[in-house]
Design a protein around this nucleic acid. Sequence first.
DNA 1: GTATGATTTAATCTTTTGATTAAATCATTT
DNA 2: AAATGATTTAATCAAAAGATTAAATCATAC
Lengths: 204, 204
Amino acid sequence: MEEQIKGGEGLSTEEKFKEAARIVFTKKGYAATKTRDIAEQAGLNLALLNYYFRSKERLFEIVMIEKVQQLFAFMAPVLNDPETSLYEKIDLIPVSYIDMLLKNPDLPLFVLSEIKNNPGRFGKMIQANGNILQSSFVRQLAEKKKDVNPIQLFLNFIGMMVFPFIVQPVLQAVVPMSEGDYIQLLEQRKMLIPQWMKMMLAGE
Amino acid sequence: MEEQIKGGEGLSTEEKFKEAARIVFTKKGYAATKTRDIAEQAGLNLALLNYYFRSKERLFEIVMIEKVQQLFAFMAPVLNDPETSLYEKIDLIPVSYIDMLLKNPDLPLFVLSEIKNNPGRFGKMIQANGNILQSSFVRQLAEKKKDVNPIQLFLNFIGMMVFPFIVQPVLQAVVPMSEGDYIQLLEQRKMLIPQWMKMMLAGE
DNA sequence: GTATGATTTAATCTTTTGATTAAATCATTT
DNA sequence: AAATGATTTAATCAAAAGATTAAATCATAC
């Protein structure tokens, strides 16, 4: 029997471990995650982790590849689409990207931390999504606003979407805010970010 | 002999450990840091760490308090100064804050990661800097731009300064960029962020 | 239903890691 | 220079953590 679906939550043992590893690694990071944490989260015997994945390191690699894809590749198709205009991209991306991040709030801080810990190893994974510098989006930014480095505007665009998720724990500590308040803040951003971007692109 | 300056780099043993701990903890995070890493970085015997600081945990606490202060308290005096106008704050803060971050590029990702790992414990440290919601700066933002939640604009302001440091490793992997290019990008931001903020505050 | 191979388990191993100890060294006082 | 207490060191400890093993269990083919 291989790769088959089984009892429990209807997942194979291998898939249960991957799912547990996604949760624990993303929440605590590689170094703070113990293999016993993953086994417990999966509700499975620790030895099975090594049976199916050989080592903590290899299981992490599998999760990390997925998560880097999720964070970066998600946006690539739209960024590179030469058919949509600059303003269409600016209007569309925040809606879908913020939705994705609302479903995966730990994703940015996890991926960025792990990349910082090992830039040489994981940097390559990102580049798989094509050269950002030559993306349709960055070319359109450069075209529209010739007097500002398009990387600057690109950074603002991404940052306005991602930064709130990175500072969420701080924000909750600093500003008394319910979960609902926080979600509403981010829902508003879907509308606000396009407006702000257009302001930054105006006046040439 | 207590608290005295000694040979080596002219620091006391205790201070050498603190300095080593600042470097290693900030670079690798709490979980990935081994006490032996710190001893090696300090060039001292491992047992001295426990002799002077009792435990890894206590040494970390000392460093963490410092680093939280550095990241948050640095900005608090200006944010809370009712004497300076909104635009003065917007003009002045990016220059000094980006300079501080250029000297401590690992600071934001380190502090934000550790707070996420333990919001209850470290959240309190931040609040020591007064209620941000009632800061002069946020009140001035609300006054100037009545139709947008000032927290949104505050997030943008901080994010435009901090986010480039958080994504630095990614940026270097994605865009071929020398250290000098990167610094220049950030130097430009000192001028650009006030301009962008004023755009976002205009049109009422 | 028995044989076969895959899967699962409990127990165990080894290395790593935070911490401690006892002895040695050093600085200061008398 | 001898006594005293602080500092430093090498050796060691105990717990944590990643990994392995041998036996038990299970599913499938015959």
